[in-house]
Simulated assay, not measured.
Amino acid sequence: MIVSTSAVHTQQPIALQPYGLPTYKTSADAIAAYNGDDQIYALYPRKIEAAARLFVSEFPGHVLYAVKSNPHPSLLQILWNEGVSRYDVASMREIDLVRGLLPRAELYLMHPVKSRRTIAHAYTNGVRNMSFDHEDELQKILDCTNQAQDLHLHLRLALPKVSKQLGAVMPLGGKFGAGFDEAVALLKSARPDVQKLGLCFHVGSQCLNIENYNSALTYARTVIDAAGVKIDSIDVGGGFPVSYPDMPIAPMAEYFGAISASVAANGFAELELFGEPGRALCAEGGATLVRVELRKDNDLYLNDGTYGSLFDAGQFSWKFPVRLHRSRPPAPCANTIGFRFFGPTCDSADTMNGPFHLPADTCEGDWIEIQNLGAYGQTLATQFNGFYSHHTVAILED
């Protein structure tokens, strides 16, 4: 929904705790208090808390937060406070970040291809869960952990015909995963050398078709039966979606119910079950506040763009929800029109076609709140052309 608001002047932060950030009642207050020249990143703790509670209480297995979607320390702490105790990490830096902030967290190195140093560093830091999708990767893990007897390894499956059948907005087939025959061989090869063995897969980012999880679990069943080895766990990966304009989604409870039903139907009820939500835990809990620097007809030039937090808006033409903030009279007009956005860099690829619907009189000096950017927004931002921001605030409004 598009909402036009009027900012209040000279607001001060409520406190720096409990989120470790300047905290304001509303995004308008945060804008009014800001005297910098860059975009403002905003976290909405109450939205993050609500998403975490939903997954912790209703997902039918263990919840692993995919750190890559947003590694901000304040967000990680909020998730921990709400009962998320497992974190999917991909690199030494992510390991060190989570271990330093949350020393009691359980870490899962679910990147299928890792450097030897990363494997050794992970094991030294208590990581026992790792994924693989190739015989050489399996051998690397065994070598770098000195043939450890306490490993829980997860074989990454390549799902068949992923680009045509799985219905995700961003299919993830083609880069990772073992095909049927290779997966069967790898399960047989890994079983004697590990304490626990599981299968994992990814149905694609922003998965809008609930049936995809059942299709993947049913396929996993055929692989396990062909291998004829004992399996200890199933990881249904990520893909849990968030509602964006033009992307309506079913309630998350329907995803959980479908996964539970498929787990039972495929004989996996006694296995340890994992899920790796990223976007679904943090997307709605983040926004970017950008300033309009110039208007040319229906084009708005902003102080953030595709080289900042709006990569998905430019690269994939995602239409994020927006609302206008104006701190001076007159109030924005009621009728809206569609705008195209341009970022601040001198690269013409810094373009977001939208359209983004805002009041027709939007002009220089107005601020636009681009919502649902808590996932893959700030975390993808670069410092290209010297345009970037280190300013993050917490907003208490829901």
Rank of each mutant, 00 (worst) to 15 (best):
V3F: 13
S6R: 15
V8E: 12
T10F: 15
Q12T: 15
A15K: 13
P22H: 03
T23M: 14
Y24G: 11
I31Q: 12
R46L: 14
H62Y: 01
Y65Q: 02
Y65W: 02
A66N: 04
N81L: 11
N81H: 13
S85E: 06
R99K: 14
Y108D: 01
K114G: 03
F132M: 04
D136Q: 10
L138Y: 10
D143P: 00
L151Y: 07
S163A: 12
Q165L: 15
V169G: 02
P171F: 07
L172G: 00
G179Q: 03
V184D: 06
L197D: 00
G198F: 01
C200P: 00
G204W: 01
S205R: 04
Q206E: 11
N209H: 10
T218Y: 04
K230N: 12
Y255M: 02
G257A: 10
L289T: 03
E293P: 07
F311C: 02
A313D: 07
K319N: 06
R326K: 08
C346T: 08
D347I: 07
E364A: 15
G365R: 10
L373V: 06
L373R: 08
Y376H: 08
Y376K: 04
Q378P: 00
L380M: 13
L380T: 09
F384Y: 15
Y388K: 11
E397I: 08
E397N: 14
D398V: 12
